[in-house]
């Protein structure tokens, strides 16, 4: 699952994931609200359960951190397996500090997602 307000980024990341063949389904959501909606409804509407969520921080309306706050309130089976926070800039100590404090965040990476980065994540959490 990709949560990012930038459709260009979503397109690019989806393409990387699809090309690598790592995921059966890629769900893209452009706001935190939509993403939460999806997570809440997935069981009733038999939607695909996201094992890996790539979350953008810098979003209008609900930003990444606010999303995580809401996400934490969901029932465990509504949540995804891993949340990877995508940071806009690699050297952004402020964001990194907040990410370190949040236990629900599995990892954080810098944009853009590359083939190598994806392989590394899959090796680390799914193999």
């Amino acid at each position: 699952m990709l949560v990012d307000d930038n459709p260009d980024d979503n397109f690019f990341h989806e393409r990387i994931i699809k090309k690598s063949g790592a995921a059966e389904v890629v769900v893209t959501k452009e706001t935190g609200y939509e993403a939460l909606e999806y997570l809440k409804l997935q069981r009733f509407e038999k939607l695909a359960h996201p094992q890996l969520i790539f979350l953008d921080i810098n979003m209008p309306g609900m930003n990444g951190w606010e999303f995580i706050e809401e996400y934490n309130k969901l029932a465990p089976d509504q949540q995804g397996d891993h949340v990877i926070v995508m940071l806009t800039t690699s050297k952004n100590p402020d964001d990194r500090q907040i990410a370190n404090k949040n236990a629900k965040v599995t990892d954080f990476k810098s944009k853009p997602l590359t083939k190598e980065m994806l392989e590394e994540v899959i090796d680390k959490y799914f193999v």
Binding site: D8, D9, F12, R15, N58, T88, T89, N92, K111, P112
Partner: peptide, 16 residues
């Protein structure tokens, strides 16, 4: 920070 985003898109799509 904000300048990075469109720039990244340019880079990404050039790569594509």
């Amino acid at each position: 920070h904000d300048l990075q985003e469109p720039l990244r898109s340019v880079t990404n799509f050039v790569n594509i």
